[in-house]
Write a protein that binds this DNA or RNA. Sequence first.
DNA 1: CTAAGTTTTAGAGCGTGGTCGAAGTCAACC
DNA 2: GGTTGACTTCGACCACGCTCTAAAACTTAG
Lengths: 151, 151
Amino acid sequence: MVEVNQQLPEPVPETGLSIAEAARRTGVSTHTLRYYERAGLVVTPVDRTHGGRRRYREFDLEWITICTRLRATGMPIKGIRRYAELVAAGRGNEDERLDLLESHHDQVLAKIAELQENLKLIARKVDVYRGRLAAGDADQLWVPNRTPAAR
Amino acid sequence: MVEVNQQLPEPVPETGLSIAEAARRTGVSTHTLRYYERAGLVVTPVDRTHGGRRRYREFDLEWITICTRLRATGMPIKGIRRYAELVAAGRGNEDERLDLLESHHDQVLAKIAELQENLKLIARKVDVYRGRLAAGDADQLWVPNRTPAAR
DNA sequence: CTAAGTTTTAGAGCGTGGTCGAAGTCAACC
DNA sequence: GGTTGACTTCGACCACGCTCTAAAACTTAG
């Protein structure tokens, strides 16, 4: 469960943003921002000040946001790196990019379906407990003889 | 993504099942079955042969299945252990069990909602790629000037 | 100019959830 | 009784995705 930054975007100044500010806006820690860079998730190297400090542009924030959405839907770091590499490679691999995104999309749909399926059993058990507790019948729930529905 | 064992249940013989057979039926490796036991996920110790080997009953398989459903929906090992402890403690904590299950249930619903939300951006990008590829327009997708929608 | 606060790097460390290996025991069949 | 093969325990190991540390360099306010 992730804090999704849902406000109107504050404009990014010409000079770019410090890593701390970029972290605040994207909801990712500074540590993680640097880690993502090291891990090859970033398409274009982030600009630096003459002193070597990162300056994040609108552009970079948007890409990081894409990364966080892919992460939040369970794409592994490797998959995102692959996507970043394709984008970095430039024109000519758009079909591969589509494949990658489409297949991830389908996997997420499948994952959601699986969650919903498994949730059914849990919901059933919640109902059982709720029903019996309401009926003051709760001690029926733990039956030494192992009636499974109640466990 | 998990193989959900969706067949009619083969009956468990009086003598119980070997760990290998229990693994096959629950879709969990023997290593993991032992690990779950060590980790305190099992309410009642699994029966043993006189030689010390585990014999799994219907009962045990059902509990393991509950564990796998909880795992598949993202409940951490600690949470499942807590639930197992409550069940093992017997009568009198049914309200706590309900709390635990209910709160997990709600978390899963929230997780699904989050997945669906984040999936939207991915679906949009898939559509963009698909549209442009169909239009033979794909080289518009990587624009050096950084039009974000296309990346 | 100085002091305080940020950011830099490389690398180590951590939490989670298994997964595996070694050495020994048990069961089954010939 | 001997040989396979499955099973036992226990601790080590692994992949993943961060997360943190240390020491040095940069930036800014006063």
